[in-house]
């Protein structure tokens, strides 16, 4: 190793210096958007967040006339991806999917991030939790299931995601609203809805509280049946499934996906994105693929969205506190 040789240094400079200058990102003064946009997804490919983000990105790409690349930045139960979105340059070239977990992560003590660290643009989808059992289970409706839980507390087990995850909160809230203690139907942690459903049909657990869109494939395949959905109103794609509210249990919860940009996004860029997303959310490419997949589109923006996020944060926070999850 002899860097002292003048020739070596010459090569070094002659070859690398121009490249370095060329490859540096030069901020242009062109109108937004003038280069590809990255759309960060904090969850793995194939999941609901990923699929809806990809459908949205495909629509946005046509509307904005610039490539919108979906990048999965997974890890840490969503912490890594959410952090990456909030820490990106607020120049409109990095957007991301911020999911319901943003209201929960900061209470688990794994991150300081809250929804206030972003510029919220729009709510894309909101999938209510369901109460799903095996197709051959003896309960025909939600009342029979509650009766069973009441008579034999602690015997039935539920699953759907990790302990303290969104579907666990759904279970806790459901039991609470039905006047039952949390231990009446204990939680079996799983790595997500797919393994939980595998457990369900293998007769490992009795109830899964994942969203309707997640159980839809198995429901159509005739392996499971859904007794109720935890929504305010019946879902347009599933008019036959009653809500919990109808049976007198006032409880609704859902897993939602919103589009956010880093904090302090300049107003003109925000306006461009706002109108583009508004068109994309009504684009048939997005709407038809979402409704086919059983996903519930709920479009909110502006003040309404901020109100929604704040409310979600306090509701989920209270739930976690009651259940003794997190700090």
């Amino acid at each position: 190793m002899n860097l002292s040789k003048p020739r070596t240094l010459f090569y070094l400079f002659a070859i690398f210096i121009p490249i370095i200058f060329l490859s540096c990102n030069q901020p242009g003064n062109k109108t937004y958007p003038s280069r590809p946009i990255s759309f960060l997804v904090p969850w793995a490919p194939g999941g609901m967040t990923d699929l809806s983000s990809r459908a949205m990105a495909a629509s946005l790409q046509n509307i904005l006339g610039t490539p919108v690349n979906v990048v999965n930045r997974t890890g840490g139960g969503g912490v890594v991806g959410h952090t990456a979105i909030s820490q990106a340059q607020p120049d409109g070239y990095t957007l991301g999917a911020v999911t319901v977990e943003i209201t929960m992560m900061h209470r688990m003590g794994v991150t300081q991030l809250t929804h206030q660290d972003y510029t919220p643009l729009a709510l894309m989808i909101n999938n209510p939790a369901s109460i799903t059992v095996r197709a051959d289970a003896p309960w025909e409706n939600i009342d029979e299931l509650i009766e069973e839980i009441r008579n034999h507390p602690g015997e039935l087990q539920a699953s759907g995601t990790a302990r303290g995850g969104i579907w666990d909160l759904a279970r806790i809230g459901f039991l609470e609203a039905a006047g039952l203690p949390e231990s009446a139907m204990p939680w079996v942690p799983s790595q997500g809805s797919a393994p939980a459903l595998q457990e369900l049909i293998a007769e490992g657990v009795d109830v899964v509280t994942a969203s309707l869109s997640e159980v839809d494939a198995l429901r159509k395949a005739g392996q499971v049946k859904t007794l109720a959905v935890m929504a305010e109103d019946r879902l347009p794609q599933f008019p036959e499934i009653p809500t919990l509210k109808e049976t007198g249990i006032d409880w609704s919860i859902g897993g939602w996906v919103s589009i956010c940009a880093p904090k302090n996004l300049p107003a003109p860029i925000r306006a461009t994105l706002d109108s583009a997303i508004m068109i994309a959310a009504k684009d048939s490419l997005f709407t038809s693929s979402m409704s086919q997949a059983g996903s519930n589109i709920q479009y909110l923006h502006g003040e309404k969205l901020i109100h929604f996020l704040t409310k979600q944060d306090s509701i989920n926070g209270a739930m976690m506190k009651n259940a003794g999850i997190g700090q």
Binding site: A55, D216, A217, L218, K220, G222, S288, Q292, A293
Partner: peptide, 9 residues
């Protein structure tokens, strides 16, 4: 699912 094809038996 997005294409409207239902898996299952």
């Amino acid at each position: 699912l997005m294409k409207g094809i239902t898996p299952g038996p």
